[in-house]
Design a protein around this nucleic acid. Structure first.
Length: 563
RNA sequence: CGGGGAUUGGCGCAGCGGUAGCGCGCACGGUUCGGGACCGUGAGGUCGUGAGUUCAAAUCUCACAUCCCCGACCA
């Protein structure tokens, strides 16, 4: 490729509102341009990188036995209605209708479509398992796009869907995808941490995110530095016994000064740690206005997402308002840990780690002490509904550390979530009976991976592409082109490389200074820079992008050592 | 969706009631030529949109739109 003809040249300055290195550099070097917020033109250089990334993924997917296909981008809305995902709160589905008033969803993920195509075949157990995937545009009506390619409203995603006869078979597939993902990201130069995460509106029981650690990342997760990594939404931790040696005392209602209202007042008044008090947090379920009171040890906070899973209300809980509390017959700070009629009580596992809790039925000048779970009150159930934090102890006994990262891929166990909700999502087993598919889905964001690579591989001069994803392998710089000899030589190098099928970007511009060409080469970040000039004589000057010094080599050496 | 900021040529910005400017980039000519050179000439803008105030609005007022940042939300 002649640089003089390349569409999308470099510019000196990035727009002032670009804050991330990947955004600035990709803009400056001519890889991307914005259309509207969160929608990007991927320019020729950028597309070459995207294609490289897609090739890496395609190869590993095919290697693992998956089959590439393509689904329409417009999904009949009726499919999304079949799984009730049109109603899932928090997910803004983009809808569009054609001239016959037929409604479509602009796909943000394609579970329904893939189930739909599979059920058209009514497979037999002999056809299973299989994994089908595609690269296609995805639409997410994000409330706020940000960070260049990191969070966009339209992007290319590799999404795969697996269909198995049962869980055991599925687990193998899940493992295969896990391994394939690690391999893909490693080839791209990315070290990923596999993090347990929340499945949100996708459904299913467990899932994992592949995260590239980065300070600018949006995903926050906790790790014990060894075997345990989990998204804060789902992270588990040990509840230590607070006072195991205390004797259990008799429950009592005592008088308490009126000024004791908040947790801080309690600490002052009783001179005991937060963990000795009961805390109640009230939520309301949006669909039916059901009131849920989460009861938890005073030093812990409630994790709304865990609670939502516990009460089967994913994406449906909101903080109760003062009006809601009034309906319960109470107000802020005076919620009881038991006894409010029409409320469901869910307790955290921490309730059994304290003897003789203080609190639980606070009134204006009284409260209860020596409250023990199981003896003095019970919840509908005890579950893990507490928010894990940095410094807490993981279940394997190590301290949890908080980190940030960019989520570049994820794998989901879907189980029967979709097959049970959609009609005829079944195969025929050995005995001729119909059985539900056991499913999984697997995604990788192409643009986000690209941005993550740039975030990791750059210096103050520009991008430093790993060879596996670089838009070109060689950046040939021709200097002194007005000199006929030099000009002949550099074109010869260009044609030799091209003849050998090499990817080469040739800076053939005649009216540009050497300094500018070098600056552009650094900015664009192609792994091997070749310079031909008066100074290089018969040889070619070769320099790797991250290195400072160059070496003089002959064209034969170039061919023998680098092609 | 809450809070903050912005919108003037392709990009970065100045101007803040009285003739729309600068730097970069672009085009042409010339001098340069190994780390973003210099001189000269030139093209390019109904100052986000719509109302209003005023003799006069890029500038003041209001509304709207778009974009950015923080948060909430979110595979």
């Amino acid at each position: 490729m002649l640089y003089s003809k390349l569409f999308g040249k470099s510019v000196k300055k990035a727009p002032s509102d670009a804050t991330l290195n990947s955004h600035k550099l990709l803009y400056q070097a001519g890889f991307i341009r914005e259309s509207t917020a969160g929608r990007y033109f991927i320019l020729p250089l950028g597309q070459l990188v995207q294609l490289k990334i897609m090739d890496i993924i395609r190869k590993e997917m095919n290697q693992s036995g998956a089959q590439e296909m393509l689904s329409p981008v417009l999904h009949p809305l009726s499919l999304w209605e079949e799984t009730s995902r049109t109603k899932t709160t928090g997910f803004e589905l983009m809808k569009i209708k054609d001239r016959r008033d037929f409604w479509f969803a602009l796909g943000g993920t394609a579970e329904e479509m893939f189930v739909d195509v599979v059920r058209k075949f009514r497979p037999s157990y002999k056809d299973l398992p299989f994994n089908i995937y595609q690269f296609s545009l995805k639409f997410r009506d994000e409330l706020r796009a940000r960070g260049g390619l990191l969070r966009v409203r339209e992007f290319i995603m590799k999404d795969a869907y697996s269909f198995d006869v049962d869980e055991e078979s599925f687990r193998k597939e899940y493992g295969k995808m896990w391994d394939a993902y690690i391999k893909c990201f490693t080839i791209m130069g990315l070290d990923t941490i596999v993090v347990e995460s929340d499945n949100g509106y996708i459904g299913g029981e467990y899932c994992h995110e592949f995260v590239v650690e980065s300070e600018i990342g949006e995903t926050t997760f906790l790790t014990d530095g060894k075997s345990y990594n989990a998204h804060v939404d789902v992270a588990k931790f040990k509840r230590e016994e607070i006072n195991p040696n205390d004797e259990i005392k008799t429950f009592a209602i005592i008088s308490q000064p009126e000024w004791v209202q908040t947790m801080d007042d309690n600490l002052k008044h009783y001179k005991l740690p937060k963990s000795r008090f009961l805390k109640n947090v009230v939520y309301k379920k949006r669909v039916n206005n059901e009131i849920i009171i989460a009861v938890i040890r005073g030093d812990l906070d409630v994790n709304k997402i865990k609670l939502e899973h516990t009460v089967d209300a994913v994406g449906q809980l909101e903080d109760a308002s003062e009006i809601d509390l009034k309906k319960l017959g109470t107000k802020k700070g005076y919620v009881h840990s038991w006894g409010h009629k029409k409320a469901r009580y869910i307790g955290d596992l921490s309730l059994t780690t304290v003897k003789n809790f203080i609190g639980g039925q606070k009134e204006k000048t009284t409260d209860s002490i020596n409250v023990n779970y199981g003896r003095d009150f019970n919840c509908e159930k005890l579950a893990d509904i507490a928010l894990a934090k940095e410094g807490y102890i993981s279940e394997s006994g190590n301290k949890l550390i908080g980190k940030r990262g960019i989520e570049v891929g994820n794998i989901f166990q879907l189980g029967y979530h979709y097959s049970k909700r959609m009609k005829n999502a079944v195969y025929v087993d050995r005995t001729g009976k119909e059985r539900y598919f056991y499913m999984g889905s697997y995604g990788i964001g192409i643009g986000r991976s690209l941005a993550a690579i740039v975030e990791k591989f750059h210096d103050d001069k520009g991008i430093i592409w790993p060879e596996s994803v670089a838009p070109y392998k060689f950046h040939l710089v021709g200097l002194d082109l007005e000199d006929e000899e030099v000009s002949k030589k550099v074109y010869k190098v260009y044609y030799v490389l091209k003849e050998k099928g090499q990817e080469v970007l040739f800076d053939d511009r005649e009216d540009v200074t050497a300094g500018e060409k070098f600056a552009d080469a650094d900015l664009i970040g192609i792994p091997h820079r070749l310079v031909v000039s008066k100074r290089s004589g018969d040889k070619i000057e070769h320099k790797k992008r991250p290195e400072k010094s160059s070496e003089l080599i002959s064209i034969d050496q170039l061919v023998s050592s680098f092609l």
